[in-house]
């Protein structure tokens, strides 16, 4: 019988950490009969069912929508955030992407600003605080306006939409050698800076969000572009250039 009919045989090296204060270590598990049609998270479910049956602690991992739009899931598979497939969240990564007998090393996202809570779960509330610092529109814009009542240039609408596709999963931070959050922050800054509704707070927003990003302990961008390649929503580093422009325009205006 082929491996497709039998299912995949996998060797998993999983990071196990009881809590934030625990040092953590890798533990090995062997998993058989994994359907190639399973998602990565379903494979983890299968592992956890096995562990529970054996009386062991299941592996903690984040997940919510399981359809690639919420940004809750994510871990590092063989050194790559969300695994090796392009433009894919962990929940949309399927086991057919791996050969039979594959050895998979699973680690949590690593960053000072993303402390590990347990196993593969990290605390990404630093992102929430960056949003709280300025990633919103607080002026009254009334009820939903009629379509095209507020004119937005097609090019700006497209760019704003592309930036708004960021789901805040943290893969950019995880894949960056400096754990920089500049792709995330710049996507949020760009999204609002490109739209008429974001203009009132435009300067205050970028200054506050960059300051919060720094205070959280994220590193600075050295333009290696790994974030863009790892991003499940393929957010462009063009946004980082835009954020830098916005930041200095804001500083110059305030002088």
């Amino acid at each position: 019988m082929s491996s497709k009919e039998q299912g995949l045989h996998l060797v998993l090296e999983v990071w196990r950490q009881k809590g934030p204060e625990d040092a953590g270590r890798f533990e090995s598990y062997v998993l058989d009969s994994v359907s190639p049609d399973n998602s990565f998270l379903e494979m983890l479910d299968q592992l956890n069912e096995k562990l529970v049956k054996e009386g062991q602690e299941p592996v903690a991992f984040d997940h919510d929508c399981r359809e690639g739009i919420c940004g809750a899931c994510g871990c590092v598979v063989n050194g790559q955030a969300h695994g090796h497939e392009k433009g894919t969240t962990l929940c949309q990564l399927h086991m057919r992407s791996f050969p039979n007998g594959a050895k998979l090393v699973l680690e949590p996202f690593r960053a000072t600003a993303f402390p590990v809570l347990r196993d593969l779960v990290v605390d990404r509330s630093a992102f929430d605080r960056i949003i709280q610092a300025g990633g919103f529109v607080s002026v009254s814009t009334g009820s939903a306006p009629d379509a095209n009542l507020v004119p937005v240039a097609k090019d700006n609408a497209e760019k704003a939409m592309d930036a708004a596709a960021c789901i805040g999963c943290g893969a950019c931070v995880a894949s960056c050698k400096n754990s920089s959050a500049m792709l995330f922050t710049s996507a949020k800054v760009s999204h609002l800076a490109l739209l008429p509704q974001g203009q009132v707070e435009r300067e205050r927003r970028v200054a506050a969000m960059v300051a919060q990003m720094d205070a959280e302990g994220f590193g600075a961008c050295t333009n290696t572009q790994e974030c863009e390649a790892a991003c499940p929503k393929e957010i462009s580093i063009e946004n980082i250039a835009r954020m830098n422009r916005e930041f200095f325009k804001a500083k110059l205006k305030r002088l």
Binding site: F26, R110, A113, K177, S179, G217, F218, G219
Partner: peptide, 12 residues
């Protein structure tokens, strides 16, 4: 600061 931001490298 960048080094401090990523104190632990990935095993792979």
């Amino acid at each position: 600061a960048n080094r401090d931001a990523k104190p632990q490298k990935y095993a792979v």
